[in-house]
Simulated scan of single mutants.
Amino acid sequence: MNPIIENLTGMNALSDQVVAMDLLISAKSGVRNYAFAVTEAGTPEIKEILTRHLVEALDMHEKTSAYMAEKGWYHAWDTNEQINLDLKNIDTALKLPTL
């Protein structure tokens, strides 16, 4: 998005939040996929490699979720707060001018 439009609409911080959430969702998907792959590994060597990748994916998820929590963008342990944040973001998105 154009930086001028981002500042006028207040979307500059929300853009960062959207990118971070996309990264978090990708990290969760990676964890799930590696965990599944570990259980299907055909050899101990492949299982070891996939397990290392799983640990790295878990680390990425932890770092991303901690970053988002620090910024106030993710409330994993407070469902009501997360729902309120999601509703606020939906309201902001609905108020964006159409181009």
Rank of each mutant, 00 (worst) to 15 (best):
T43Q: 11
A41E: 04
M1C: 09
L23G: 03
A41I: 01
N80C: 11
W77S: 12
D91Y: 05
T79F: 12
E81H: 01
P44C: 04
A13W: 09
D78C: 02
T98M: 10
N89S: 07
T79Y: 11
V18F: 01
L54T: 03
A76G: 08
D78R: 02
G10E: 09
E45G: 12
Y34T: 12
L14G: 05
H61G: 04
Y67G: 10
H61A: 07
I49T: 15
A27I: 04
W77F: 07
A93Q: 08
A69C: 00
T92V: 13
L54K: 03
V38K: 04
G42H: 10
H53V: 00
L58M: 06
A20W: 02
E45C: 06
S15A: 11
E40M: 14
D59N: 08
P97T: 11
H75A: 02
D86L: 07
T9K: 02
K95I: 00
K71A: 10
W73V: 00
E6K: 12
W73C: 00
H61F: 08
D22M: 04
N7V: 10
A41W: 02
A93I: 14
T98E: 12
A93S: 14
R32D: 11
N80R: 15
K63R: 15
T51G: 07
Y74Q: 00
D91M: 08
M1Y: 09
